[in-house]
Design a protein around this nucleic acid. Structure first.
Lengths: 192, 192
DNA sequence: CTATTCATTTATCATATGATAAATAATCAC
DNA sequence: GTGATTATTTATCATATGATAAATGAATAG
């Protein structure tokens, strides 16, 4: 594991809570570096999520198929944690995949070993509690953004809150993320 | 605090993780019983969430106003935990309120004191970590249920997955929960 | 019990979005 | 660099849902 990427990871963790050195070492020991090419699946559909990922570089999305149609659930950028929580927290196989949208460098954290670390390092349990609490809050905001807003409102909100998505991600993925067809998204963009 | 209601609370906690007796006592010490009449707000809009609630009896909903329109974010039944997490986990005031839809008996858990207990009782931190992880997973499922489904599909899914909501909750609240108007909901019901 | 308020349904019309097809534009493999 | 594939836009038509109004039904206060 490259030192540089671990530094980036622990830098990210500091936003949530401080970790004693021993705890950092313990986490470092269960991390693996992953280099992956654009458009490849980091995790396929149907497998149980046993890894928590951190993006050092690149973009990724979680997606699944609804009636044969590719639906993007979420996008993830540099310095963020990705996990298919509905699988990670339940132990059930996930119907969702993680795909990388640019050549990426990723740190994989072995989830089972991490959960074991919770017993010896309450600070680590606290860290990940806070990480997922923050992700939970984001998800709640997401619902608010969907409920009772028109497609156009949702597009404008995205333009305001996460313009990077529109700059770096193919529109066809953005469309399903917004819950509309690609054609509708194109029409909405055309009006502005 | 009534013994009976605490038993019900700890019974609920057992679904997530076992607690040592001392931890249960520590939690019991920060709980207060609340009796509240139908249609009253348990927590008003604009206040910062400092209490985690457990419903011993009754139903509640979280709601807010979007452009002057009452929107239901979620429903909660007996034996469930309610919190406006976007306020609880960020310390910011909530734009949402909690309202009781039937005469209810509720246990309030002082959140600040609870978070202090996390330091001395890792088991308590673990318990609430798991509780909110499970709630997070539910929220992720919720998004899946909204994205790319028609109003009719969403109604039918609700009929299947949570028929109790339709039995015990006024339809006007169900409509905004489904992200549609009351009139549309009525029309959809009429077709079936 | 009665009157009043509130909730639900029904009807009509307007509009946003979906479905499909075709034209352009951009990207990729070789 | 060129052809082939893929992404995006544009156009047309169909339909689900919203907005509004009015009628019916249920709940509540006094």
């Amino acid at each position: 594991m490259q030192e540089k990427e671990l530094v980036q990871l622990f830098q990210h963790f500091k936003k949530y809570t401080a970790l004693p050195e021993k705890a950092e070492e313990a986490i470092a020991a269960i991390c693996s570096p992953i280099t992956i090419k654009k458009n490849r699946d980091l995790q396929p559909i149907g497998h149980t999520c046993k890894t928590i990922y951190f993006i050092n570089k690149g973009i990724a999305r979680i997606y699944y198929f609804k009636d044969g149609i590719d639906v993007t659930e979420n996008f993830f950028f540099e310095n963020s944690i990705i996990a298919r929580v509905e699988s990670l927290f339940t132990g059930k196989p996930s119907r969702k995949a993680i795909q990388v949208l640019e050549d990426a460098e990723i740190t994989g954290i072995n989830a089972n070993l991490l959960f074991k670390l919770y017993d010896s390092f309450p600070e680590i349990e606290r860290l990940f509690r806070k990480i997922f609490e923050a992700a939970y809050v984001e998800t709640v905001h997401r619902i608010e953004g969907i409920q009772f807003h028109t497609a156009e409102e949702r597009y404008k909100a995205l333009l305001l809150e996460a313009p990077d998505i529109l700059k770096r991600v193919p529109l066809k993925y953005v469309a399903s993320y917004l819950g509309i067809t690609q054609v509708s998204l194109s029409r909405i963009r055309g009006l502005m």
